[in-house]
């Protein structure tokens, strides 16, 4: 049995990682809440963003600075994907959306494989192994920064949805898209903006992950399944649910890694995922479907 201090450190570290997971999940749940589609390409787009951070790093741009140009870049990418590819190709049928985003995921992931090969790369960031002592615990500095920025972005996103006209339009479309159309909202534009916002979240998450993580063309697969778990746990389309779900999944992953070891440790997240889907598919915070 481990001492309470080790377990406490694992819990806190799990929460720090979980905050970045929550950011990935936030994008996914936003897209689900408004467009009512599951974006299977989310993980591949995250991988893309991580390669972009890595590429900018090779040019001497630090990962946190890289977020600044990548956020508008990924917003535009997401906007274009929804407006010109996913929307027209799927003609509003759920099964089609699933398959189209799956096709995009395969194409993007393997496109990265062709360009960068299967090698695993990481940044030689100066602060990767810096630790900060908080009480008796030693916490990794990049993860602390990641936690703080992820919380800030979540608050910003909430403010955008709650306080601006664009946010009001997004909420109107999420509630009732036909009604929104009747009062003059351009629904296709709002769909694309929402998809863009979801992708912008990924750009931030990539900048926060890269200092302490690595990237290869398949890295997004692991994240997207974690993000699905968080979204399902928190309730599809629920923003606070994604935040709390993210922290919870981070802790579970950290603890199951501690108790079950690295290779079997990944199983904890999937078991929660399956149990939540089977027992309470609307999630812990979502409305009953």
């Amino acid at each position: 049995m481990y001492s309470p201090a080790i377990i406490a450190e694992a819990v806190v570290n799990g929460m720090l990682t979980g905050a970045v997971y929550a950011l990935v999940a936030l994008g996914l749940t936003l897209i689900y809440g408004v467009l009512h589609i599951i974006n299977f390409a989310h993980g591949a787009l995250l991988t893309c963003a991580m390669f972009a951070v890595w590429g900018l790093g090779a040019l001497g741009v630090g990962p946190y600075v890289a977020i600044v140009p990548l956020v508008p870049g990924f917003f535009a990418l997401g906007y274009a994907l929804q407006r010109f590819v996913i929307g027209p190709a799927s003609r509003g049928r759920d099964g089609n959306v699933l398959l189209v985003t799956l096709g995009l995921a395969i194409a993007i992931q393997n496109g990265l494989l062709v360009l960068f090969h299967a090698d695993t790369r990481s940044l030689d960031a100066g602060d990767a192994f810096e630790v900060v002592a908080v009480g008796p615990m030693l916490l990794s500095q990049p993860r602390l920064i990641g936690f703080a920025v992820a919380v800030a972005v979540a608050v910003l996103l909430w403010a955008l949805l709650a306080l601006t006209d664009t946010g009001r339009a997004i909420r109107a479309v999420a509630r009732e898209d036909l009604g929104a159309r009747l009062v003059g909202i351009d629904v296709r534009h709002v769909f694309a903006v929402t998809f863009g916002l979801g992708c912008a979240c990924l750009a931030v998450a990539a900048g926060l992950l890269m200092p302490s993580y690595y990237v290869n063309p398949r890295v997004g697969e692991a994240f997207v399944l974690i993000a699905f778990t968080i979204v399902v746990l928190g309730g599809m389309g629920s923003v606070p649910g994604a935040a709390i779900g993210g922290l919870a999944v981070g802790v579970v992953e950290s603890l199951s890694g501690l108790f079950l070891g690295d290779s079997l440790g990944q199983i904890g997240v999937f078991l929660i995922f399956i149990l939540v889907l089977l027992l309470r598919p609307a999630g812990l915070f979502g409305a009953r479907a």
């Binding site: 799956l102 995009l104 395969i106 393997n110 062709v114």
Partner: peptide, 22 residues
């Protein structure tokens, strides 16, 4: 022997098939 090239094509074909040859 470039790994992934065929898969890129499969992914794009999946999107194209849904869009044009439902």
């Amino acid at each position: 022997p470039v790994p992934g090239v065929d898969q890129v094509l499969f992914g794009l074909m999946l999107v194209a098939a849904i869009a044009f040859v439902p």
